Amino acid sequence: MLAHSRSLGHSSVMKLRNDKARYGWVAIGLHWLVALAVFALFGLGLYMVELSYYDPWYQSAPDLHRGVGLTLLAVVLIRLAWRALSPPPAPLAGHHRWERIGARLAHWGLLGLLLVAMVSGYLISTADGSGIDVFGLFEVPSLTGRQNGLEDSAGLVHYWSTWALVVLAGLHGLAALKHHFIDRDATLKRMLRP
């Protein structure tokens, strides 16, 4: 009984950092926060482009989209810094070489598409020279000033990068489910708890 209670006490210690075998709570939390924000922003983006001028959400939906998008950019930068401080665990033994290469390409592809989507979204919103108000707390200024045609070209990049991001994230999720239900390995479990 005493050994059981000690093991429970030891397992309840909050593991923040990654180790060689598992992710810590910080990496897990940042992963799921980014995933939730990406799909929420994508859904909000699809919703807001269909709004009419007289819809009550016509002004507030884009403001919310921009505010969450810039907050997500900060979270992604924090996640990159955390990754440098606490490197991810090694791939699980037993994965094929093509799976390890595919996972690495998918992770860097997701990160690249995230950054392209957020920077292009920023450029859409600041192409007229105005800054972006973030939830009334502060304003992110325009770095480009007024640029004719920038809104349209950045809009095209934003549209395709967000679609590619969501498709790749969906494939990433399906791969995790394949590892969990077919391969029966700990790939998904490592991203659920340390």
Rank of each mutant, 00 (worst) to 15 (best):
L16V: 07
R17Q: 03
N18M: 06
N18I: 08
N18Q: 10
K20V: 07
K20D: 15
K20F: 12
R22M: 11
Y23F: 15
Y23V: 12
G24D: 03
G24K: 02
W25E: 13
W25G: 05
A27L: 00
A27D: 07
A27W: 01
A27H: 00
I28D: 01
G29N: 14
H31A: 04
W32L: 03
V34E: 11
A35R: 00
A35E: 04
A35L: 05
L36E: 05
A37Q: 09
A37I: 09
F39P: 08
A40D: 08
F42Q: 04
G45Q: 14
L46R: 09
Y47I: 13
M48F: 11
M48D: 05
M48A: 13
M48T: 11
M48H: 09
V49T: 15
V49E: 15
E50I: 04
S52V: 11
S52L: 09
Y53E: 04
Y54C: 11
Y54N: 15
D55H: 01
W57K: 10
Y58E: 03
S60F: 07
A61V: 08
A61S: 12
A61D: 03
L64K: 03
H65N: 06
H65M: 10
G67L: 06
L72Y: 04
L72F: 07
L72P: 06
V75K: 01
L77V: 14
I78Q: 02
I78A: 14
I78G: 08
L80H: 02
A81K: 01
W82I: 00
R83S: 08
A84C: 00
L85N: 07
P88D: 13
P88W: 00
P89G: 06
P89Y: 08
P89Q: 01
A93G: 11
A93M: 00
G94Q: 12
G94E: 04
H96G: 15
E99T: 13
R100W: 11
R100M: 05
R100N: 02
G102R: 09
A103D: 07
L105V: 15
A106P: 10
H107E: 07
H107P: 00
L110E: 13
L110R: 00
L114H: 13
L115T: 02
V116P: 01
V116G: 14
A117R: 06
A117W: 12
Y122V: 10
L123P: 05
I124M: 15
